[in-house]
């Protein structure tokens, strides 16, 4: 099975400032995205996520290594035929209408040999854009442009959809809609590769992730082992007075104990002091703790 995306020791060095000082944006990154996955590309702002995506989409050139799309070098224009791409904070030609914009991109995508069956109206509906298709884009809000950009990625019914920070600029309803759309596309067999610095989005959507820090790949693989943490540990939340190393959690206190025996002893101590038990669950790290350290 050919991988949808492959990064093979990909590096990118920029020249910055007046003297052209070298700056390493991405350093020898290697990982694979298999077909049918929702793959999260994580990292803080400036970690190098967008640089990798730009190289993948032929907008920038690697200074070392290479990237492949369905087994073909992404620098070849034909390699991009089966890919839909939404850039970060998309801007489109403000003097075109939504219809003209979609028709224009449809023709460009069609030259790669792929044509989607969905009409512009259907695509706008899928992207949650309830606007007349003959309205000029200069009157669109940031969120509307984001949704139009998503409609544009689906024009030619590509097998791989690359979204660079797709949730940015969207309100909570918009974010929920995009999450649902990503899940729906994956359900229909599409591969979704999206970058985000909001770890909650990745946690709720992804099968696998790659995590970048300052241009270096720190982790790639499934989410489950990353989130499992110490499976023996139990988290107890209670009201009352603080005990030992308990931490404030809203109006309550939270404490982690190493095993079931310790949890039983602690619960009895809480009751003895007149406290009230709120929850007692097997501790699991969230993605933020797993990637950046710290505990609940």
């Amino acid at each position: 099975m050919t991988a949808a995306i492959e990064f093979l020791a990909l590096s990118k060095t920029y020249r910055e400032g007046f003297w052209g000082t070298k700056a390493q944006a991405v350093k020898e990154i290697s990982f694979t995205v298999n077909p049918g996955q929702i793959f999260g590309f994580l990292g803080a702002n400036g970690a190098g996520k967008t640089t990798c995506i730009k190289i993948l989409m032929g907008l920038q050139f690697a200074t070392g290594g290479k990237s492949l799309l369905f087994g073909r070098n992404s620098e070849e224009k034909s390699a991009r035929a089966n890919v839909g791409y939404l850039p970060e904070r998309p801007y489109f030609h403000e003097n075109l209408t939504a219809n003209e914009f979609l028709n224009f991109h449809r023709k460009l995508a069609k030259n790669g040999g792929r044509s989607g069956k969905r009409t512009n109206e259907e695509l706008l509906k899928i992207a949650g854009l309830t606007v007349t298709p003959n309205k000029l884009l200069r009157s669109f809000s940031k969120g509307m442009l984001q949704r139009l950009g998503i409609a544009q990625t689906l024009l030619h019914d590509p097998d791989l959809i690359i979204l660079d920070e797709p949730m940015s600029g969207l309100d909570p309803i918009g974010r929920r809609d995009i999450r649902n759309l990503i899940l729906d596309l994956a359900h229909h067999g599409k591969t979704i590769f999206f970058s985000t610095h909001i770890l909650g989005d990745a946690e709720s959507l992804c099968n696998e992730i790659a995590f970048l820090e300052k241009g270096v790949l720190k982790y790639t693989g499934k989410l489950s082992p990353l989130l499992a943490g110490n499976a023996e540990e139990i988290e107890i939340v209670y009201s009352g007075e603080p005990i030992d190393n308990s931490k404030k959690a809203g109006d309550n206190w939270k404490i982690n104990v190493k095993d079931e025996a310790a949890s039983k002893a602690l619960i009895q101590e809480i009751w003895r002091r007149g406290g009230s038990l709120k929850s007692c669950i097997r501790a699991q790290k969230n993605l933020e703790e797993a990637l950046y350290g710290g505990s609940r």
Binding site: Y91, L108, A109
Partner: peptide
């Protein structure tokens, strides 16, 4: 950056 969605096409 309106060029992005164009150049990324084949």
């Amino acid at each position: 950056r309106t060029i992005y969605t164009i150049i990324s096409k084949p």
